[in-house]
């Protein structure tokens, strides 16, 4: 399946290997992995809330759009929810295409749309308290280029 929304960790090496396996139709595979980043130091956990049902549908629609816009052999999106430790992988995308330009562009498109069109919300838990991560204007503007 091309879309997975899960609380369990994933092994990005194993996922990339499985995605690439037997893919003689694609000369290029691009993978991107998002990691829980401790921006200011002192991050204990990142809690990721989502909208069950809509999340899967929204990501599937974004994935389908990428498959339509670029000549892709396949693409994969994995996004976690729940409580994640600093350094843990949050999500990954992988794209397979005949040529690298399509694979890179589609991966960037997927990332830009997942950031502000898939129903996830991040909350940072630090020693000093908890706060919701605010959406950045740059994230919204990033959609304009597509």
């Amino acid at each position: 399946m091309g879309v997975r929304v899960q609380s369990e960790p994933f092994d990005l090496g194993a996922e990339a290997t499985a995605f690439a396996a037997g893919r003689s139709d694609a000369g290029a595979i691009v993978t991107f992995t998002g990691i829980v980043r401790d921006v200011e130091g002192g991050l204990l956990r990142m809690e990721i809330e989502h909208y069950p049902g809509m999340t899967e549908a929204a990501i599937a629609a974004i994935r389908a759009e990428a498959m339509t816009r670029w000549s892709l052999a396949d693409c994969l999106v994995i996004h976690r929810h729940g409580s994640l430790a600093p350094g843990a992988p949050i999500m990954m995308v992988a794209t397979a295409a005949a040529h690298r330009a399509d694979a890179f562009a589609a991966a960037e498109f997927l990332m830009d749309y997942l950031k502000s069109r898939a129903p996830f919300w991040k909350k940072e838990i630090t020693r000093g308290g908890a706060s919701w991560v605010a959406a950045r204007e740059a994230d919204e503007e990033a959609l304009d280029r597509w």
């Binding site: 996004h79 919701w132 959406a135």
Partner: peptide, 24 residues
């Protein structure tokens, strides 16, 4: 489905209200 405040509620079963999304 993402929508906006002007959307009609006729026949609608579920409405969700939330801050801008911060996935990825």
């Amino acid at each position: 489905e993402l929508s906006d405040f002007s959307a009609s509620l006729e026949g609608v079963r579920e409405v969700a209200i939330f801050p801008p999304m911060t996935g990825g």
